[in-house]
Design a protein around this nucleic acid. Sequence first.
DNA 1: CCTGTATATCCGCATAAGCGGATAATATCA
DNA 2: TGATATTATCCGCTTATGCGGATATACAGG
Lengths: 115, 115
Amino acid sequence: MKKTVHVFKALSEEIRLRIMALLEEGELCVCDLMAVLGLPQSTVSRHLAYLRHAGLVEGERRGMWMYYRLADRADGLAGELRLLLARCLPDLELIRQDRQALADYLARKDQDTCN
Amino acid sequence: MKKTVHVFKALSEEIRLRIMALLEEGELCVCDLMAVLGLPQSTVSRHLAYLRHAGLVEGERRGMWMYYRLADRADGLAGELRLLLARCLPDLELIRQDRQALADYLARKDQDTCN
DNA sequence: CCTGTATATCCGCATAAGCGGATAATATCA
DNA sequence: TGATATTATCCGCTTATGCGGATATACAGG
């Protein structure tokens, strides 16, 4: 029961819902999320840690970067909630804005790499 | 977005999840929930108010009693969450115990009425 | 009205949770 | 090893949340 409550708590915060929606687009590192959300690093890392402890997200270090993605083998509740979020979050204007900001950011990032 | 967060907050509390599971069995008044959960009246009423404000539950006064039930016309998110809870909550031992306690309580109640 | 019952709300208190700058830990590269 | 970049954690602070006794409100019956 504690675990169930913890999963719901993890999703009952605006920034964490926005992060979940962004990770739905694919894995991202902390600095990607900082740039798109416009939030300080400690805030982003803290929320990612919360989501990770709830089993909703998993991280993998590659070099200096920590890449986060939605947890693959999410058990019953977490898995169902992921599907639910995928259906319901795009209804929210702020979520759509974030996803557009992510697309813009990734385009800019790729372009810079070519310079 | 605030509404979405509010709905998740409503479900990220043990007592409120237990209440949701009990109301899945049918409408109940505050004193029924007090008896089954073994909690003081102010605590039960407060949690019911929280669930009501989140649109997950609705109440109807009949005489001296307020009967609460799961909200019928739950919109997108609330509706999806109700289905999800119906699937996932019975996995939890505490929830099954509560439902058994409810069944016992209702049986006793009916019997007393016949006296 | 007055009394008793059921429920909602108020209140002060204790704990939890979010914030973001500061610091520590980890990794890369010279 | 030293300098730099990325991320995690610590810290003090503020706000939010839950608690349950006390009080207020709503209703039924005399």
